[in-house]
Design a protein around this nucleic acid. Structure first.
Length: 257
DNA sequence: ATCGGTACCTGCACGC
DNA sequence: TGCGTGCAGGTACCGA
């Protein structure tokens, strides 16, 4: 679930609790969370700061960066006891960190190489750079928005919501978007992400931030998971199709190829 | 290099 | 009640 707004909300909630704290003990209950790498020795390391890049939570340990990716169902909870799906548990001086992830798509990794391959941050990239990157890609725009090497942080919900606000069909070929439509998409992505962060993200099933708070942007979704219902803008029936094996929701009247 | 399909996991809602 | 199916916020990897 967690896309950029949910990760950003989690990071903001996390920050005051763990910045400057030292890790006393790190326990990994399932090796899968580490990918194929050996268990890092984190005892005694101090968290200098907490940041985010794309959908990655980054704990600055001085010489190293500990990255936590929440996958589809991950949560990172402060001061909550271990539960059924706890995959890792950190004890700090004066706080605990509980990594809960039922589906185990999440990963905890020291200095991941992936970070360097991420595309620009959607809230930082300029329109000129966004357009330049769009021009060379022949894939469907929805698939491209999910590509973290193109733009980092946008996932299934915010891709669909952005395309609806921009009035662009998810099957439109990226390189064929002219300056006007590219500009509308650029603005829509920024607007949707900014509003979602202000709402604390979207709580679709059980997403909560580090302090256990739900987000509320889901009540403002205009197409995501609304197939069969009326478009709030034009009244047409929202459709659901598959793009890149992901459910894709759009209005057939508002969104043109 | 780019693109699309599959695999990796668990849980839930649904129909029978 | 229980079983099978389809679906879910993500990404790595493979072959074309």
């Amino acid at each position: 679930m967690p896309e950029l707004p949910e990760v950003e909300t989690t990071v903001r909630a996390l920050r005051p609790h763990i910045t400057g704290r030292t890790i006393l003990e790190a326990r990994f209950f399932n090796p899968r969370v580490l990918g194929r790498k050996p268990e890092p020795d984190l005892a005694g390391r101090t968290i200098a700061s907490v940041g985010r890049r794309g959908k990655y939570i980054l704990l600055d340990l001085g010489d190293d960066v500990l990255s936590i990716h929440l996958g589809m169902t991950g949560k990172l909870l402060v001061n909550a006891p271990p539960e059924t799906h706890t995959r890792a548990y950190f004890t700090l001086n004066d706080a605990t960190l509980n990594f809960v992830d039922p589906r185990m798509f999440g990963r905890i990794e020291l200095n991941p190489a992936r970070i360097a391959k991420l595309g620009p941050e959607p809230l930082e990239v300029t329109f000129e750079e966004f357009r330049r990157r769009l021009k060379t890609r022949r894939t469907r725009i929805k698939a491209l928005l999910l590509d973290q090497g193109f733009l980092s942080g946008v996932g299934n919900i915010y891709a669909d919501e952005s395309l609806h606000r921009a009035g662009i069909h998810p099957c439109a070929i990226a390189a064929r978007l002219g300056p006007d439509r590219a500009r509308r998409l650029y603005k829509a992505i920024r607007q949707v992400l900014t509003e979602a962060i202000a709402s604390g993200g979207s709580s679709i099933s059980d997403y909560v931030d580090a302090e256990g708070r739900k987000g509320w942007f889901q009540i403002r979704h205009r197409v995501y998971q609304r197939h069969g219902e009326k478009c709030l803008r034009c009244g047409a029936i929202i459709r659901r199709i598959l793009i890149a094996q992901r459910g894709t929701h759009y209005c057939p009247k508002c969104q043109k190829r």
